[in-house]
Design a protein around this nucleic acid. Structure first.
Lengths: 183, 183
DNA sequence: GTCTATACGCTGATAGAC
DNA sequence: GTCTATCAGCGTATAGAC
């Protein structure tokens, strides 16, 4: 992978998190990298392909993290998961799902399918962590695992969005509440 | 308020929820209402003022609901609150906070301040409901009220976004988990 | 890989007629 | 209130030179 291509993806990722997919432009990228509009098109003929590459990179990085956590116990896994959002929050960023999910219906189809596939995997992973935690008696809650998982994922996703709006540390509050709610 | 002005606000509201503030245009509105671009500018000289009007209308409607719920007990209040998101979810819509919050930093300042003010009020309202529920022994949870409130609001907000991505009934799952977690 | 040049529709916005 | 006319700039995208 060429260096410029990688820079374009990284920049597009940043722009999507900041402005959303529909509101960033090739010029936003070319002006920062000091290249021309056409040079960006050389690497990504269409904006949809660039968007797809951004999702794929995010997902690749995410699954690599997930793999690393295989050795952790349920409590540690959940904390590692939460820490991803904590880190994003400390940088004032939103997650890629939050950035693109709100305008999901307007995304090119090749981006929609990538995004949906990623959401399936994340939900399955967290369910499995919660299930294991119940079995080992590390976690204690009465809700259905599926519902608890969606509750947690949803809260983490929005905590980053609401942090921007409220200018308060919502991710920290959500973290405390999640950890308390599984004890 | 003229009928056209009201139609413009309603349409802009719909477009913002669907595409986001930065990605909708005056043409999206004028073409549907069968008027010209310039006619929209007559009612809202700038896009920022239209965006502000959309937030204000949402907030006016929201606070009217909140007032109605003054007579309810904490359990009923929480259920009424959740029902707002359930209804949006059944229509495939996201809430105005979710639609605009993700790109908060790119919004005109007059929109940012309206949005932030609204978030303060909602959080205060839910905290008060949770606090009262603890006092009356209707609710049982050990987390801090502030953290629990942010947990719940965050989850509801994202449940609408994730419903689009996953094509599953996330709001229903989140609703169950919330109600179970305060029992 | 990056450039210049170019296409052409859409963008938010304004001036002035009706 | 709505129209026509007009604006300068930006949007994605392509062709072909270097």
């Amino acid at each position: 992978m060429s260096q410029t291509r990688q820079q374009i993806i990284d920049l597009a990722d940043q722009l999507i998190r900041e402005k959303g997919y529909n509101a960033f432009s090739y010029k936003d990228i070319s002006s920062v990298l000091n290249i021309k509009n056409a040079a960006v098109h050389y690497h990504f003929p269409s904006k949809a392909e660039l968007g797809k590459a951004v999702i794929q990179q995010n997902w690749k990085d995410y699954t690599r993290e997930l793999k690393k956590w295989d050795v952790l116990n349920p409590t540690q896994s959940l904390e590692a998961f939460i820490q991803v959002y904590e880190k994003l929050g400390s940088q004032g960023l939103v997650c890629f799902m939050g950035a693109m999910g709100a305008a999901y219906e307007t995304l090119p189809e090749i981006m929609q399918s990538e995004l949906t596939a990623a959401s399936v995997e994340i939900r399955l992973w967290l369910r499995q962590v919660l299930r294991k935690g119940l079995e080992t008696n590390e976690f204690h809650f009465t809700e259905k695992v599926e519902e608890k998982a969606d509750f947690i994922i949803s809260a983490l996703l929005s905590s980053l969005i609401l942090q921007r709006v409220t200018k308060e540390n919502i991710p920290a509050n959500v973290k405390s509440a999640i950890l308390a709610s599984v004890k």
